[in-house]
Structure formats: structure tokens, C-alpha cells
Design a protein around this nucleic acid. Structure first.
Lengths: 229, 229
DNA sequence: ACCAGTATTTTGTCTGGACTTGACATCGCA
DNA sequence: TGCGATGTCAAGTCCAGACAAAATACTGGT
């Protein structure tokens, strides 16, 4: 009964959580482990590599692997498409386009998207509902210099997120989360009082080193992002 | 010059971002890819596995691998220890203990930590400063039933986070992020106006299926959590 | 037409062997 | 003493081949 890489992983993790292998201490070399578990070094290597990826151990050539002093805690949050998020909770999804315009980019946006003066952008404001109550407010700016198709696209039936995903298959993103206070308009749309604290997600999507779209998503009052590991 | 798994990964990712392989389309089998790249199947497998881990492709036995329709966007946020976060920015760190008490767990906490009536907890309130200005407010509750050592520990010089890390080597956690409004006390400590929106992180740390500590971290006004990928 | 069992395909994992790379140690020479 | 060349070790990567497992396709019987 040879050990799988999964067995090895959980066993090592167990030794660490139980305190048998203390933070900072050296873990036996791959060759040793391979022998004790009765498996090949490649198998041990995979187990150790994944533990290192997860921030639990630290590996260095020549010196060996050791338990991290401060286990690097990193949380993985899924950033879902609103519609999927809502539908996965068994709620009905509704989308509403509030405003749609094509304008010259305001200065703050020009700086953010690295646009030239006079460059035009498509500006969209929309709302996403779950079971009829407001769920998320979307304030979206699309760079028309990079995505001229966006000028003629129709966003009255479905949101810009889904359209954009069909246009830009995969891209690099910068996501930022902060708290903000509801202004008059937001309060009305999200059905809360002005000044209420709201969770906001900002996202800039880059493609070929150029920012193609910037969006500010304001979540419904009380919204939480949760993850466990 | 054979292709490394890294080469293969970037090449495939390139084909996807350039739109050569569209979302939903089938990617050649590992055996095919191994031949086209002139490497072993194991090498291709590793490249594909990592792409799958990153949420870019979807793999299924027998049916093969395909580009995800909705690239699973997941953000990895580092959850740093405050002190490290501050010191990495080249700022000076200061810690202050505001309140320390051992009390019977209030009802809301009892529910959260699954405690029996009368069980006692250590309650700590502290502040973390960066370059002299308030950075983070920490409201920490430690389960004394599971961690009796916490009753006699001294938190006047350094924060409970660091002490806890020495006690619980590795554990599973539930993290939740939300927006909250500053109350009178928070406003005073964090040097802002009451009602100001603040980003709050809540964390429950479990060990052996029992919640050992619950903490509510309220960040300074304007704080953002950022990540890019 | 339906169903159960079987074949096939594709990914998942493992093996034991090899070479590479980065980091450290040490030796020899100026 | 200082310093560069060389050695050594452990992790990093790769290979070819093998079997396992899951999911689909197929096939024959009812």
C-alpha cells in the first residue's frame, strides 16, 4: 500500500498542526521522506511543492525545507460574475440599465486608463437584482480606443460584464476592495440610507498592457465576502 | 531544445488570450500536445494542471480539457500580520493594548465559538500604529476552554496575533470582509469621524474542529486591499 | 426502445531514473 | 588574508513507461 502524494501531504500537514514539526524546524529531505513513505521522490516532491505553494513550508535548494515561522496566510476569494453569484443562491436574477452614454473621458479616468485628451469612453451604470431586491450597483467605463465595438453594443438586455467576457477571453486584472459611504444616488438605487457603509470592489482589466475597462462595483448593504481554508 | 512546462503554460495561455482557442473550445489531448511540444506527457500534464488550478481551463477525464467559458476569476489576497504589513512599507510599528479582561462569553460570542454557558474568554482590544498614526483596531476574543494558557499570557508588549501563532502552528480559518461604520469609540481610536465607512476583516480560527479565537479587525479609513493577476 | 454490462478514451497518478540549477562550503593560490 | 575556482548537496525539472479512475460510447440482449 504505497502512499499517494495526497497521503504524504496530509501526513506532513498533520505533523505540523500537531506541533511535532515546529515552525522554523527543518523537514527531512525528499529522499528521506521518499524512503519513509515508500514512494518515489517525485511523489514526495509534489506533496512538498503543494505545501510550499500554500505557504505552509518554505523550500530552499541546498538548505532543505522548513516549516514557515509565520505561515503565510493567503485567502483566495472567488470574484464571481454577479449573475452566477445570484443564481447559485437559487435567487432570480434581474438586470437593469440605468444610464448609457459615450463621452470624452473625464480627467480622473484618463489618468487611470492612460488615455489621451479627447479619447472617448462608453460609460454605463446598471443595477443587478437578486429576487427583486438590489444586489449590486455597477459603474462601468469602457475604453473605446481599444474596444470600438463597445460603442454599438446593446447593453439593455444583459450586462456589460458578460459582453466583455465574450470580447476579451482572458486578461490580467487589478482588483481592489474598500469601504465607501452611500451617496444620495447610491442610497436610492441600493435601497439604503445616505452615508451607510458599503463594500466596494474596483477592477481594472488590462489587455496587452493597456487598460481596456474600469469598473466600480458597489455591493448591497451588509454584503460580505467570505472564504475559508 | 525541449519545451519546459513553463514554456508550454505560457504558450497555451497565449493561445487563449489571443483568442486562438476560444472559451468553451476543446484543447488537444495531452498526448497530442506532448508531441507538438516535443516533451513528455507528464510535462504537458503539469502545465495543464496548473492552468486548471488557476481557473483558466477545465479538465474532465474522457472528455478532455476545454477553455473555461467564464474564466473563474479568483483573487488571492495576502492576509498579512499587521506588523509585517506596516514594516514592509518602511514604517515604524507601534502596538498599544487598550483593554484586557477575562469574562464569561457574551451570547453572540457563545454562538459563534460554540461555547457552553459560563465558559470564559479572554477579551483584548488593541491598536496597531504605522508611523504613529492608527492603522488597525483589533478586537480579539480567545476561547479559554481550548487555550487556557491565554489567561496568563502578557499582551502588553506585543499583540495577540503573534502570541497565537506561537501556540497554534497551523489551522483552518474563515475570513470575511465587510464594510462597517465607525462608532464613537472606533472613530476616536482610528482618528476619523463617527459614521465613516471602514473596511473590516473578521476571522475565526479553528483547530480540531473547534473555534479557538475570533477577531474583528477594523482598518484605518481609506484602507484598501489590492491584488493583481 | 430500453437497459446493463463492456470497451475505449482521456486525464490522474506513480515509478525510478536522470540531468539542471542555485546556494553554500571549501580549498588553493596570490 | 582575500578571493575566485571547484565541489557538493538539495530542490527543480524532466522523461518514458505504467496502471488507475472516471466518463463516455458502444453493444447485445430483452
Amino acid at each position: 500500500m504505497p502512499a499517494t502524494y495526497r497521503d504524504i501531504k496530509t501526513d506532513i500537514l498533520g505533523k505540523i498542526t500537531r506541533g511535532e514539526w515546529k515552525p522554523g524546524s527543518l523537514i527531512p529531505g525528499e529522499l528521506d521522506l521518499a524512503e519513509t513513505y515508500g514512494s518515489a521522490r517525485a511523489t514526495v516532491n509534489r506533496a512538498m511543492r503543494e505545501l510550499a505553494d500554500e505557504g505552509i513550508i518554505e523550500r530552499k535548494r541546498k538548505s532543505g525545507s522548513r516549516v514557515r515561522l509565520t505561515p503565510l496566510r493567503q485567502a483566495r476569494f472567488d470574484i464571481p460574475v454577479v449573475r452566477h453569484e445570484i443564481e447559485e443562491q437559487g435567487r432570480s436574477y434581474r438586470y437593469a440599465l440605468i444610464r448609457s452614454e459615450v463621452i470624452a473621458a473625464p480627467d480622473w479616468l484618463r489618468a487611470r486608463l492612460a488615455l489621451a485628451p479627447g479619447d472617448r469612453v462608453r460609460h454605463l451604470v446598471c443595477l443587478h437584482f437578486g429576487d427583486g431586491t438590489p444586489w449590486q450597483h455597477e459603474d462601468r467605463w469602457i475604453n473605446l480606443t481599444l474596444l470600438p465595438q463597445a460603442e454599438s453594443a446593446d447593453f439593455s438586455a444583459s450586462g456589460p460584464t458578460e459582453w466583455l467576457m465574450s470580447q476579451i477571453p482572458f486578461s490580467s486584472v487589478e482588483i481592489s476592495i474598500a469601504a465607501t459611504a452611500a451617496d444620495e444616488v447610491l442610497a436610492q438605487h441600493l435601497d439604503c440610507a445616505p452615508g451607510d457603509p458599503l463594500l466596494m470592489t474596483e477592477r481594472s482589466t488590462r489587455w496587452n498592457d493597456q487598460t481596456v475597462t474600469y469598473v466600480r462595483l458597489v455591493h448591497r448593504p451588509g454584503h460580505r465576502m467570505t472564504t475559508r481554508y
